[in-house]
Simulated assay, not measured.
Amino acid sequence: MTLGLILLSVLIVSLVSLVGILTISMSGRKLKNIIFILISFAAGTMLGGAFFDLLPEAAEIEGILIADIFLYTLIGVIVFFLIESFIHLYHCHVGYHKPHEYRHKPIAYLSLIADGLHNFLDGIAIAISFLVGIEVGVAVTIAVILHEIPQEINDFSILIYGGFSNLKALGFNFLSALTAFIGALFAYFFSASMGGGLTAFLLAFSGGGFIYMSAANLIPEMHREAHFDKSVLQLIVLLLGIAIIFVITNFA
């Protein structure tokens, strides 16, 4: 029964990834007109997710030093830099020598990797909470859903910005969400042997990935906007994304 509740909860959370379907009805021109706002929101939610959710959770694990969290975060930044460098090299080898000729921007693939890892961790959290008690499991599932709504809008926006079509972005985002099942099953069968050090590493590593994508890809893209009024709007949306994650992680 417990395993069934865990899998049902993970399925419900995974279906939140389809929130991007709300933009399917938009024309390509209309979506293009608001993409700069979506990118600002994505940058904000990524920074908020890293500094208000992932890193604090890693720091709260017993026996983990703050210095270790910084190290794991730095490893995440470096690994995501190497992954992006590999993607750039791959594109060059297959004949795409100029950034504007890429069929898909590297940020799209980085987002899928980071989101997959993040959903894997969500699956672990849901499974462990149900092993503690059904009431705890339901509460954690609701909290994850509230957290995932802005996160999935973020992920969908990045995939669209990265060159994916609406339907392709929706499909890949859903596939990435399914890694939560792997995390849930892993935690259910191996929770007794899963140490806090591994969980802390995964949390901080994922946080480092979020920081890298926001600082190296999304925020520089925001600087392309030359109009003052749009730049101010971008800043407001960036801060809104950060604020939403802060509220969800502290009061949800």
Rank of each mutant, 00 (worst) to 15 (best):
S27M: 08
S27L: 12
S27H: 12
G28C: 09
R29Q: 13
K30D: 06
K30I: 00
K30L: 04
K32M: 12
N33D: 14
I35H: 05
F36V: 05
F36R: 08
I37S: 14
I39A: 11
A42S: 14
A43F: 09
T45F: 11
T45A: 06
T45D: 14
T45I: 04
M46G: 00
L47R: 00
G48R: 12
G48K: 08
G48I: 05
G49E: 13
G49N: 10
F51K: 07
D53W: 12
P56G: 11
P56M: 09
P56S: 11
E57D: 07
E57L: 07
E60F: 04
I61G: 06
G63M: 09
I64C: 03
L65F: 07
L65D: 14
L65G: 03
I66T: 05
D68I: 01
I69V: 13
F70C: 05
L71Q: 07
Y72M: 05
T73N: 14
T73L: 13
T73K: 11
L74R: 04
I75K: 05
F80Y: 14
L82I: 10
E84T: 01
S85C: 02
H88I: 10
Y90G: 07
Y90S: 12
H91P: 00
H93L: 07
G95L: 02
Y96K: 14
Y96Q: 15
H97I: 02
H97M: 06
K98M: 02
H100C: 02
H100A: 00
E101G: 05
Y102P: 00
R103H: 07
H104F: 13
K105P: 04
K105I: 01
I113T: 12
I113Y: 11
I113F: 15
A114R: 00
D115V: 08
G116W: 08
L117Q: 11
L117T: 13
N119Q: 09
N119H: 14
I124A: 15
I124Y: 15
I126D: 15
A127T: 08
